[in-house]
Design a protein around this nucleic acid. Structure first.
Lengths: 246, 246
DNA sequence: CGCGACCTTGAAGAACGTCAATGGTCGTGG
DNA sequence: CCACGACCATTGACGTTCTTCAAGGTCGCG
């Protein structure tokens, strides 16, 4: 737990245990995974669309996200990643990146060779199943975001996103209360939810007016968790966690 | 190829070979998979949100789709499935369905027990990798739809959807020209793309006015494939096929 | 023939985007 | 300590896109 590379496997184990039961041997095997560490500043691309990576990145601390740029100034953000995530795990079986993976905040990242991961999934099929499951939860989150973009209004989408981020941060122990550092600019929230910056701003004002949230000094305080869940039509089933989050 | 259950494995093999190289042994193993066959009419649910299926379904002929209902009359369709697909392969590692899988057209479906699939993925890790890859392509398609719903206009989204369906139908040999039976009502197209029926109707009129498509007798004719791709901002990279589709 | 499912049309309004300007906060260097 | 600049949040005015509601119209089928 002391050395940074132990920190990497600890975070991965913690993440996998939020969606899968690991036994002692499996935890041990994961701890043996060789990793290479690297620090990134904010807003740096880690793997770009078109790349053919030979390794995947495990987020240790900070926040990452995935996006695609289409034409002039139009960006779509697909996902937000919290510590313990392997944002480009999919590159293990999809050789060409069809989108870009980047840091949102300064982040500590561990790289794991695909060969090592592949070998582990073959030798320990249950760990393979856990990782496969992780990519399936990833897809489930995409589906939920699709519902939002297709069929929910702006305030609902924003509330939903805040609910999801809070639950996921709590699941890996980054936060334990109902406050968390708001790492997103309104532009980034808009790019994630398919909204303009201006409209995000006005919709967030609505959430504040309803006393669901408060923002001060780059911190988001959830004032009324039940109310926010209701506003966001948030049902955490799609996160497929082992235990229902609070 | 004669018996219906051979037809099932043939379609699966064909589908997997569009995204993965199988060898003779692997083809042989897949052919041994025990399946149960069943015919469905149109608009029938095959697995529902909340279910915990012990088998997955392989589409042999017809069209299936996946969706979620949220509140009064709001439905979001996530994906369209062509023969050879296993629409709920994800249930292999996500025990609870977070959405519903249904037929759009009358369809012939083969059910495969999860136990048999799991055993195969453990004994033949390359087949496991192919199936995992398939679920990752599924997720890549979600991402592309997210880009559409978040950042593209109605006509572009519709053109994109037609391009994708055509490419996928061609990949498994259901069509070889540029015409295909249009299995969707305008309401379904709207539910897939996050649009109202009325707006789908008007946007399709635009595509016809531009001589990109023609619809007659429930058949969609692509009059100008290059033009449609351009209108739809369609780049098939995200389908991760072995060979670039025409 | 008549019914149901689907497509089409018009009109009005809500939701959201764009443009452009203002103000706040924070870190940095003088 | 202050001034500056960068980045971000906020506001107003105005346009566009898309939705909603309501009413035909078309087609296949029993």
């Amino acid at each position: 737990m002391s050395s940074p590379s132990h920190q990497a496997s600890e975070m991965l184990i913690r993440k996998l245990e939020s969606i899968f039961d690991l036994n002692d041997q499996e935890r041990y095997i994961i701890k043996q995974l060789p990793v290479t560490l690297r620090d990134y500043g904010p807003d740096q691309d880690v793997a770009r669309e078109g790349d053919k990576p030979s390794q995947s990145c495990l987020l240790i601390s900070g926040i990452m996200f995935r996006y695609k740029i289409i034409g002039a100034g139009r960006r779509q953000i697909f996902s937000i990643h919290t510590p313990g995530d392997i944002p480009d795990l999919q590159s293990l079986h999809l050789s060409v990146m069809d989108h870009t993976v980047a840091t949102l905040q300064p982040s500590k990242v561990a790289f794991i060779q695909h060969d090592a991961l592949r070998e582990m999934t073959v030798d320990y099929p249950r760990i393979g199943a856990a990782l496969w499951r992780d990519t399936l939860v990833d897809a489930a989150i995409f589906r939920e975001w699709m519902v939002g973009m297709g069929r929910r209004g702006a305030a609902t989408r924003i509330a939903h996103m805040f609910c999801e981020v809070l639950v996921r941060l709590r699941a890996v122990g980054v936060t334990d209360g109902y406050d968390f550092p708001l790492p997103f600019t309104q532009e980034e929230i808009g790019d994630a939810l398919g909204l303009s910056t201006v409209h995000v701003n006005r919709s967030m004002q609505l959430l504040r007016r309803e006393s669901l949230i408060a923002t001060e000094k780059r911190t988001l305080k959830v004032l009324n968790w039940e109310g926010l869940k209701e506003m966001g039509e948030f049902d955490p089933l799609y996160l497929h966690m082992k235990q229902e989050p609070a």
